[in-house]
Computed example of a mutant assay.
Amino acid sequence: MTDQLLDQALVEEATKKSGLVWVRGLPGQEDGASSRALWHVWHDGAVCLVGDGPGEQPLPDLVDGGDAVVTVRSKDKGGRLVSWSAKVVELAPGSEEWDVTVGELKGKRLNAPDGEAMPERWARECRVVRLAPTGSTTALPDGSLAAAPVPTSATTRRAAPAGLPRLLFKKRRR
Rank of each mutant, 00 (worst) to 15 (best):
M1H: 05
M1Q: 08
T2E: 06
T2W: 07
D3W: 04
D3C: 01
L5N: 05
L6P: 04
L6H: 09
L6S: 02
D7W: 03
A9W: 07
L10T: 05
V11I: 03
V11R: 06
E13Y: 01
E13T: 01
E13A: 04
K16D: 06
K16E: 01
S18Q: 09
L20R: 08
L20C: 02
R24W: 04
G25Q: 05
P27Q: 06
P27C: 00
Q29I: 06
E30L: 12
D31H: 13
D31I: 12
D31K: 13
D31E: 14
D31S: 07
A33Y: 12
A33K: 02
S34V: 08
A37K: 11
H40P: 03
H40T: 00
V41Y: 07
V41R: 08
W42M: 07
G51A: 08
G51T: 07
G53E: 09
G55A: 06
E56F: 14
Q57D: 09
Q57T: 14
P60G: 06
D61G: 11
D61R: 15
L62T: 09
G65N: 10
G65V: 10
G66E: 03
A68V: 10
A68F: 07
V70S: 03
T71L: 15
R73P: 14
S74F: 04
K75T: 15
D76I: 12
D76P: 14
K77S: 15
G78W: 13
G78V: 11
G79A: 08
G79F: 12
G79V: 11
V82E: 07
S83R: 09
S85A: 10
S85Y: 04
A86P: 04
A86F: 06
A86E: 01
K87A: 07
V89G: 01
L91A: 02
L91P: 05
A92E: 14
A92C: 10
P93K: 00
P93R: 00
P93N: 01
S95G: 06
W98V: 03
D99Q: 13
V100N: 10
V100C: 09
T101Q: 08
T101K: 09
T101F: 11
V102T: 03
V102F: 07
V102S: 05
E104Q: 15
E104D: 13
G107S: 00
G107Q: 03
L110E: 11
L110H: 10
L110A: 14
N111S: 14
N111L: 15
N111H: 15
N111I: 06
P113A: 13
D114I: 14
D114Q: 09
G115T: 09
E116S: 15
A117L: 15
M118Y: 09
M118G: 08
P119T: 08
W122Q: 04
A123L: 02
A123T: 03
R124L: 14
E125M: 11
E125N: 11
E125L: 12
R127T: 08
V128I: 12
V129S: 06
V129A: 02
A132H: 04
T134L: 05
L140C: 02
L145S: 09
A146D: 03
A147S: 12
A148W: 05
A148I: 00
T155D: 15
T156M: 15
A160G: 00
A162G: 05
G163P: 02
G163K: 12
L164M: 14
L164V: 13
P165A: 04
R166G: 11
K170L: 14
K170C: 13
K170V: 12
K171H: 03
K171Y: 01
R172I: 14
